[in-house]
Simulated assay, not measured.
Amino acid sequence: MKLAIMQPYFLPYIGYWQLMNAVDKYVIYDDVNFMKRGWINRNRILMNGKAKIINIQMYGASQNKLINEVELLGDKKHNKKLLRTLESCYKKAPYFSSAYPIVEKIINKEEQKLIGYLEYSIKQICEYLSINTELIVSSTINKNNDLKGQDKILEICKILGVDEYYNAIGGQELYSYEDFESQNIKLKFLKTERINYKQFNDEFVPNLSIIDLMMFNSKEDIKKMLEQYELL
């Protein structure tokens, strides 16, 4: 059984979905500390040919809180403004009519907790892209929460009966092939290949939110992109 574990991010880039699609079970890591200036509550879209940051408004967010302790502000005016921005940026994109209703449904989701909102958004995108991986929220797993880093990951793997553990390429320095092998688990890192597609007539801007891919590409083409990676 193949497993991946990642913090929940706000409508993340293609690599996040590649990792999820490559495994049998995917743990949404919600009982670790919230990271400011990361991608948990924000992402980038295309505006006038350049990357533009969009975000979720939160209440009392702090690195001293776990992700599942952070609450949303629930500002409907902010959400309406965000949707107007997305419509303005992408209304002439070829797949706007099919992608925008999904994004609109996510943005308008009324949810008090950040983790509930992000879990909902992940499930909506999975449904749109026909990603059928089983999703598990880490706080629902009965484990030793005093463990940190690799040790906590290994315990989750042991509890779930994992044979292979996949991680994003950025975590290579955090995990040891030998330590995983000692637990009879194969450790692999997923490296996204270079993915280009037409964005209006401007120079291509890479690594934007999945929103951008959905606006400019068919579901069938995105499914092919989900397979464009290398395992190390």
Rank of each mutant, 00 (worst) to 15 (best):
L66E: 00
G60M: 13
S88Y: 15
I45E: 01
I67Q: 00
Q124D: 04
K76V: 13
C89H: 06
L3T: 12
Y175E: 02
K50A: 14
N68Y: 04
N68S: 03
V205E: 00
Y120A: 00
I141P: 14
K80L: 13
S138K: 08
Y229Q: 02
N201G: 04
N132Q: 14
F216C: 05
E104C: 10
E87Y: 15
I67R: 00
Q7A: 03
K219I: 13
E193H: 10
Y95Q: 14
N184M: 07
L11F: 07
F204Q: 02
S209A: 03
L73Q: 11
E71V: 05
K81A: 12
K224C: 08
D202E: 05
E220G: 05
Y59D: 08
K50T: 06
C126V: 09
E69K: 08
L19R: 04
L208Y: 07
A93H: 07
I185V: 11
D146H: 11
N79S: 08
I131W: 02
P206E: 00
S98H: 10
N108D: 02
I106T: 05
P94N: 09
I136C: 13
Q124I: 06
I5V: 15
L118A: 01
A93F: 10
K80S: 12
K76N: 09
L147T: 01
D221W: 05
K25C: 11
Q183H: 13
N184S: 11
G49Y: 08
Y29S: 05
I107Y: 08
Y26F: 15
L190G: 01
D221Y: 08
E87F: 15
D31S: 07
N207H: 13
K77A: 14
Q18T: 01
E230Q: 12
L187T: 01
I141S: 13
I131D: 02
Y166G: 03
N48R: 14
G74T: 06
R44C: 07
Y197V: 03
L129A: 07
I125G: 07
H78P: 09
I169L: 09
S97A: 14
L72Y: 02
E134S: 14
D151L: 13
M58V: 15
G149K: 14
S139Y: 05
K91G: 10
Y100R: 14
K158M: 11
K81H: 13
I106H: 07
L187W: 04
K91E: 11
Q183D: 02
V205I: 06
E164C: 08
R44T: 04
N43F: 06
K191T: 08
L66G: 03
V23G: 04
E119H: 09
F200R: 06
V23Y: 06
G74N: 04
I159P: 08
